[in-house]
């Protein structure tokens, strides 16, 4: 792709118009995602307020070190991807591709820790809240703990699905960077995917204290 000419589709008056429309479209999508996860956060407020002791007892059973490490991993992956975008803006497709691979690696590490290690441990401890197998040490607070684990599995599961989608999108950017499709005049897809990747990070930033910290203090 040329470094001096920014192409655009026929329905847009300019490349800037096309880029602005793409960014606005992604922000509109993210606004719907905010409300989607808003329902989940409201569930947390309601369930915790009605079952305080059990809900907090459930939170104390979570693996704090995995949650904290995963938060650091996601913050780093957002930083790495944003660095790749900065490289793309100066025309360095190779560095962008490397940053995408690093972000993908961090995303996969997050998923491995969350689902490979933490969830499997939760299943071993009989913390899956649906059905008669649920067992919780603090029996008087079992009801609230069961509700906590409903929130935990739905929240982390939905976030994990978004992570998988983000990894696929970042891989597509890496593939296009390998083909040198981006230039200082054309980085819109890199920007749009970066917004989504960082948004998934923000969701985890909120989920982390709700799941691991607030019930512990």
């Amino acid at each position: 792709m040329s470094d001096t000419y920014a192409p655009h589709e026929f329905q847009y008056s300019s490349a800037e118009h096309q880029a602005g429309t793409a960014l606005a479209g992604m922000w509109l999508f993210l606004a719907t995602e905010v409300l989607f996860f808003g329902g989940l956060f409201l569930t947390w407020i309601y369930a915790r307020s009605q079952n305080l002791a059990g809900f907090d007892a459930g939170a104390r059973e979570t693996e704090l070190w995995i949650g904290t490490l995963n938060t650091g991993i996601l913050l780093t992956s957002s930083f790495v991807y944003s660095t790749g975008l900065a490289f793309a803006r100066v025309g360095n497709n190779r560095r962008l591709m490397q940053c995408c691979f690093a972000a993908i690696g961090l995303g996969l590490a997050f998923l491995a820790l969350k689902f490979g290690l933490e969830w499997s441990g939760d299943f071993d401890k009989h913390l899956w809240p649906v059905g008669p197998d649920f067992k919780f040490a603090g029996e008087p607070t079992e009801g609230g703990a069961r509700l906590f684990y409903v929130f935990y599995f739905i929240g982390t599961g939905l976030h994990g699905v978004h992570m998988v989608g983000g990894i696929v999108l970042v891989a597509m950017i890496a593939w296009r960077a390998r083909r040198r499709e981006f230039s200082p005049l054309y980085v819109t897809p890199v920007e749009v995917v970066g917004m989504y990747w960082s948004f998934v990070d923000i969701i985890w930033i909120i989920l982390y204290p709700l799941i691991y910290l607030i019930g512990r203090s």
Partner: peptide
């Protein structure tokens, strides 16, 4: 763009 900031604020 301004419209994108509007969407973010509305969200």
């Amino acid at each position: 763009p301004v419209v994108a900031r509007g969407f973010a604020t509305a969200g």
